[in-house]
């Protein structure tokens, strides 16, 4: 009576052991552990979305997280200097240069812009409420060690040259692999 029960228990035990070994193998294959890091793609070049990105970035840095921001597509225009110019651009690059905002302070709201009135109103409100401006947020981000990575392909597509890009303490030109390598090790990933 008890013999089959014991045998059954033994098989069950062996099965469990086998499963644990399999799991152990899978855990080892998972690779590097995740870091207390935030990887954010800043895709938008809108004032409101840039504000959100920078507030989250500085907040995360304050929480002790490592923060990496990847500026790509419309986001790259926000990294231009307000008065930077580059020579030797072809026609299309010049067109993009004219059409896109020249730096973070020329960006507009994604909604309720109303020909610039909405943006001006928001900026006035922010001043009144003592909310940090994009200038202040970028400066703070630099002090807190927030890293900025700029998408090399976006730069090339829009015809931006490196001498047009702001001076920031921790800025680097990268491709998609760099972003993916950071994001796969991050506990937090955002796309804004």
């Amino acid at each position: 009576m008890s013999a089959p029960a014991t045998m059954q228990a033994t098989t069950h035990y062996q099965d469990l052991e086998f499963q644990i070994a399999e799991l152990r193998k899978k855990v080892e294959e998972l690779g590097p552990a995740q870091e207390n890091k935030l990887s954010m793609i800043v895709f938008s070049g809108d004032l409101d979305k840039l504000l959100a990105s920078m507030i989250i970035a500085t907040g995360a840095a304050a929480m002790g997280m490592k923060v990496v921001l990847f500026f790509t597509f419309w986001g790259t225009a926000a990294l231009r200097k307000a008065n930077g110019d580059a020579r030797g651009k072809d026609f299309m690059s010049k067109m993009f240069g004219w059409m896109l905002p020249k730096g973070r302070n020329k960006t507009k709201l994604s909604q309720m812009n109303m020909g610039g009135m909405g943006t001006a109103m928001l900026k006035g409100l922010m001043k009144k409420k003592n909310a940090p401006s994009l200038d202040q947020l970028f400066e703070m981000a630099g002090q807190l060690g927030v890293e900025i990575k700029v998408c090399e392909m976006s730069m090339d597509l829009m015809g931006f040259k490196r001498e047009e890009i702001i001076d920031y303490p921790n800025l680097e030109y990268v491709g998609v692999a760099t972003f993916l390598n950071h994001s796969r090790k991050s506990i937090n990933q955002l796309f804004i």
């Binding site: 907040g59 304050a62 929480m63 002790g64 940090p132 703070m140 807190l144």
Partner: peptide, 13 residues
Amino acid sequence: GLPCPMPVVKMSQ
């Protein structure tokens, strides 16, 4: 007088 995110940023500093 400091709004978000300044209080926690200052705190961390």
